[in-house]
Design a protein around this nucleic acid. Structure first.
Lengths: 146, 146
DNA sequence: CCTTGACTTAAAGTCGACTTTAGCTTGTAT
DNA sequence: ATACAAGCTAAAGTCGACTTTAAGTCAAGG
């Protein structure tokens, strides 16, 4: 299949496919002139990559999970990520509760509110970040070059 | 207090404090020569900012919550973030379960495993990202300019 | 008075995952 | 045979939140 077909089947733009190939995450099976040719199983591989990304793996980490023959799941790494997710989930849950409290708390100064102070303590422990432009990108991507 | 004191009290590097001031998130009360002077309440403000970051707010969003007089918590925004966190937590939990399953699943091809396929479906819905270099940065920061 | 170390600024650099651009090349349809 | 849409490459740009760098200022201690 050519790159456009892969793009359509995987939902990823061609630029991303080229980028992934350059990174060694997928391979093309050959060329027809200049044009890359892919075998159908690249679709599964891309699904795996998307999955990994969703689970919080970096592209490099995902790359390390693949062996020449195919995917070689590193079980220890999976379990470590799962544990990491557990910790993240706990922190996010605490934050969520704190936010809901803050929204109704009527203490004039939040620093006098014990719940708020607890929240502050939790927050101090860790910093994580989330992007906030993902949907926009998805939308743009869908609309691109109509 | 001068910037070094604020840095120490807040745990943030001076460069970050200047950056936040430039962004309008904090203000200095004046100067002693070139040097910024801060009033003590900037510490609380910084705690609030760190809290917001931990809860997933962007600096711009945090900025919008402050009014000239101080902080003016936008309750609707807080609740919306809390709901967003709920959704994120659900997805992360599904991912975590999927990872744990994948680590023990012995199906030769994961695409034949229904649990795995369900995971794939969930992953397809959303993409979120997490950084992976935060601790390193923190460590480096502690060691800097010994 | 002079050194010095903490502070200042503006501008550039970093990180990860891509996207965009500019300028070519080519398979395919007419 | 020729046009042209679709592919190609290398390089630069983007986003957010900072950090780093280079070059300059200056208050305070000796």
């Amino acid at each position: 299949m050519d790159i456009a077909e892969v793009a359509k089947a995987s939902g990823l733009p061609a630029s991303t496919l080229r980028f992934y190939e350059e990174k060694g995450l997928i391979q093309s099976t050959g060329r027809n002139g200049l044009r890359r040719l892919f075998s159908a199983n690249v679709i599964e591989r891309l699904a795996l990559i998307s999955l990994g990304r969703s689970a919080g793996f970096s592209l490099d980490e995902i790359g390390e999970m693949f062996t020449p023959e195919g995917l070689d799941i590193n079980r220890a790494l999976l379990l470590a990520k799962a544990d990491e997710l557990d910790r993240t989930i706990e922190e996010l849950a605490a934050m969520r509760d704190g936010l809901r409290h803050a929204a109704v708390c009527k203490a004039p100064n939040h620093f006098e509110c014990p719940k708020f102070l607890r929240l502050l303590r939790i927050a101090g422990k860790n910093r994580f970040r989330q992007p906030n432009k993902l949907k926009e990108n998805k939308l743009k991507r869908g609309v691109q070059k109509t």
